[in-house]
Amino acid sequence: MGVAARLAMGAVALCVLGGATFWYLTAPVRLDPIRLAGLGTGDAAKGERIFWAGGCASCHARPKAEGGAKLELAGGVELKTAFGTFVAPNISQDPKDGIGAWSVEDFANALMKGVSPSGEHLYPAFPYTSYARMKVGDVADLYAYMKTLPSVAGKAPDHSLRFPFNIRRGLGLWKLLYLDDDPVVEFPEKMQEPVLLGRYLAEGPGHCGECHTPRQFTGATNDGKWLAGATAAEGNGIVPNITSGQGGIGSWSEDDISNYLETGFTPDFDSVGGTMVEVQKNIARLTPEDRAAIAAYLKAIPPHPNGYPPRKAKPAS
């Protein structure tokens, strides 16, 4: 055998080995049986709170749906990002086009591990990176509540993503690096309620960090600048800094934050705008205690200066 042939064989072997390693590392990982056992039967009445805290309807109702139509989770909202356009799928109870045929275990694996019932990786535009921090009991309650919502036929269009982001299997590597269920902000052991409830709501179901935290080039949140504000994923705007650091909301009291989440008005009586309008309407459906907990959490987290670049200088004219 010549040197060239040997080299070629070596290259092939390396490729096979590399491919096998890739396949092994990118395999979908589901919830372990111990956690799945904690799901229980689920309570639909309690699940409604989780539904609004999670903001499910903001992406999964039809674009611009209002009132009762918000509970028809037909999908179709587009999220235009640097990776391409994501389209929120149908998560209504339709057994064919929605998730009506999913078991509670399927639902929990999608929500907390980003794995579909058929074993595909879901894209983290669906914020399972935050939902991973949820309590399994809350996930079961949410499942029970969503069972009470209407079934709507019709699939939403597929995502339209650039290479290599259109290869789902690759997400396995990304998840190895970035998917975990630990809280982001660690507090001293003596930390009191309602801060811990606020942390749960904000870091878990509320997924505040998905927009309010700047992202690295890999698309993962830069947790060293947690909630410091970020360049918006869509359009030319920014998402504000909601820590107490420079440019943030340090001058707001806990009451100011609660009031904003309830009414949509800042202490200066500017109003909520952009995509936060939907979020604020959802949070307004929670209890005053839940809103106060989120406020207490935001006042307790480490302050950071703005996580987005300063505005360009004004044009000369």
Partner: peptide
């Protein structure tokens, strides 16, 4: 008051 958020939802962007 509803007008504030409904108009700011689509017609204003936040800037730094």
């Amino acid at each position: 008051a509803k007008n504030c958020s409904s108009c700011h939802e689509g017609f204003r962007i936040k800037k730094g």
